[in-house]
């Protein structure tokens, strides 16, 4: 892939096909850890980290194991296995070698191991038949898009805390309405032809 193709791929993954707001992947952390912007940022960085490494790992497993034995239909199971093991491994590694980074990402890493956004990016990589660099770029960009959505949503929710919300809408209902509005705003990017 050329650099301009990679750039288009990355921009597309961040804005046009935003994982959370357009593809509706990773909704659980989107609603769960979006109450404060700093936790949202922490989660976002964990996702970027995990999705980047998971894209590479799943690409290698897909190319060298699943394709060789001609069992690509097993990719969902295989990818879940790879991602779960990878997250565990990364967590152990960080705990030992980069305790400060582990402290910052630590509590979010286990949450990522079974996240559909991570599995989603792995499956999309194989569906779109990206090469290794393309997969990693797509994974990282998708995660940046996820972080962007999470951060936007968290900052809106922080403001919502102080607004006068009708009793029936307090808490999650108004958060869901907000999420829908942000999602509609991102739909506006669909006219952008970058791919």
């Amino acid at each position: 892939m050329t650099v301009s193709q990679l750039f288009a791929l990355s921009l597309g993954a961040i804005l046009v096909e935003n994982f959370v707001l357009v593809r509706f992947l990773g909704i659980c952390p989107f609603l769960g850890v979006s109450k404060k912007t700093d936790t949202a940022l922490g989660m976002g960085f964990s996702v970027i980290f995990v999705m980047g490494t998971a894209s590479a790992a799943t690409y290698l497993v897909n190319e060298h194991i699943l394709k060789r034995f001609d069992i690509e239909y097993m990719h969902t199971v295989a990818f879940i296995l790879v991602i779960a093991a990878l997250v565990q491994l990364v967590e152990m590694f960080l705990k030992k070698s980069a305790p400060s980074l582990h402290k910052a990402l630590g509590i979010y890493l286990p949450l990522m191991s079974t996240n559909c956004a991570v599995l989603g990016v792995a499956i999309l990589n194989t569906q779109n038949e990206f090469d290794l660099i393309g997969s990693v770029v797509y994974g990282v960009s998708a995660a940046i898009g996820f972080t962007l959505a999470l951060l936007l949503f968290a900052s809106v929710r922080e403001k919502l805390e102080f607004s006068d919300v009708p009793a029936a809408f307090q808490g999650f209902p108004i958060a869901l309405v907000t999420a829908a509005l942000i999602s509609m705003a991102f739909m506006g990017f669909s006219g952008l032809k970058v791919m």
């Binding site: 497993v61 194991i65 034995f69 199971v77 295989a78 093991a85 491994l89 152990m92 705990k95 030992k96």
Partner: peptide, 25 residues
């Protein structure tokens, strides 16, 4: 083939994790 491959992968990851849990303890 499917069972053996996925099982093998699982076993491999299990061993790797077990080793690294000692290594990175």
């Amino acid at each position: 083939t499917a069972v053996l491959t996925i099982g093998g992968l699982g076993l491999l990851f299990g061993v790797v994790l077990a080793v690294s849990s000692k290594l990175f303890a």
